[in-house]
């Protein structure tokens, strides 16, 4: 019984990580209807960026991410402004193919620079610290921080989207590009800003990716799939739905792993397919749309 309770708790905590992966993807789709096939690879890229900043400056990853975040904001802004804005339009193929190409470039670029070796972000004692809950169940501090960070990210994103002028501009642009322009909104700038913001979220996701487990240049595509599954399970259009989707996916994976360790990933995918078959609009779809 404890084993199952433990699986549930760990599943919810793992869901925090997936929600962090998914929040960036959700943001990109929400504002510019962009489905970014390189999302997972960009998370891995950010993890390497934190690794390098932490290593070169001898910093703790938590400090390094604060330094890497603005850099990543600029990279995201530039990527959208220079490259991805050119691909957006009625035709679906260009954004998909360009981000697919980016995925291959990032993956192999990282392989070239860092080799296929596994890496890990090191943060001392916190990595292994845990809070005992009694009954043989303990919560790892890092997994807990992951979930809390995911909640914090979603609260902040919701505040930006629903309480600030730029958030209004994000939503207006997503509703109607042409009329948004009539409001004096510079579309390509808004898109670039949204991508910059998504990259900051990605930096936070990358921090926990690297703290929780080993990573190497090839694990990006799987992270894209988890992020995507969380977004679809939760239902498009709501950040809280994305968090819920992440938790559902995390639970499915830990429960699957509890039955047979080799079934962890498969159980997550199957949960996604079941949700898709039964509730194609996700578990928590936005009322309108």
């Amino acid at each position: 019984m404890t084993g199952w309770l433990d699986a549930l708790i760990q599943g919810v905590l793992l869901g925090g990580l997936y929600a962090l992966f998914a929040a960036g993807l959700s943001l990109m789709f929400g504002v510019m209807r962009l489905v970014n096939l390189a999302h997972g690879d960009i998370i891995v890229l950010a993890a390497f960026a934190i690794l390098v900043v932490a290593g070169k400056l001898g910093l703790d990853p938590f400090v390094a991410v604060a330094l890497a975040a603005p850099i990543l904001f600029v990279i995201g802004f530039a990527l959208q402004h220079v490259l991805l804005n050119r691909t957006l339009g009625r035709d679906l193929l260009p954004p998909l193919l360009v981000t697919f190409g980016l995925s291959i470039i990032i993956q192999n670029g990282l392989l070239q620079i860092f080799s296929a070796d596994s890496q890990r972000l090191r943060s001392g004692a916190i990595e292994t610290a845990s809070i005992p809950l009694g009954g043989g169940i303990a919560i790892g501090v890092v997994p807990l921080l992951t979930l809390l960070s995911a909640i914090a990210v979603i609260v902040v994103l919701n505040m930006i989207f629903y309480r600030t002028p730029i958030g209004r501009a994000f939503r207006a642009t997503s509703d109607d590009l042409e009329v948004a322009e009539l409001m004096g909104i510079d579309i390509s700038r808004i898109f670039a800003t949204a991508m910059g913001l998504a990259f900051v979220v990605i930096a936070i996701a990358a921090l926990y990716l690297g703290l929780r487990a080993n990573f190497d240049p090839t694990i990006g595509p799987a992270r894209l799939l988890y992020a995507f599954e969380a977004v679809i399970i939760g239902g498009l259009g709501s950040f809280w739905g994305t968090l819920a989707g992440g938790v559902v996916l995390g639970l499915a994976q830990t429960i699957g792993a509890r039955i047979d360790p080799e079934w962890q990933i498969l159980a997550g995918h199957l949960a996604f397919l079941v949700v898709l078959a039964l509730r194609p609009r996700g578990l928590f779809p936005r009322a309108q749309d």
Binding site: A169, A172, E178, V179, A180, L182, M183, G184, D186
Partner: peptide, 27 residues
Amino acid sequence: IALVPEGRRLFPSLTVEENLLIGGYGR
């Protein structure tokens, strides 16, 4: 120069007040 477009075209995911506020976004 501001245009009131044909068919109103308000932003459906914004409230009435937010629609008004966004009108002053660029200028």
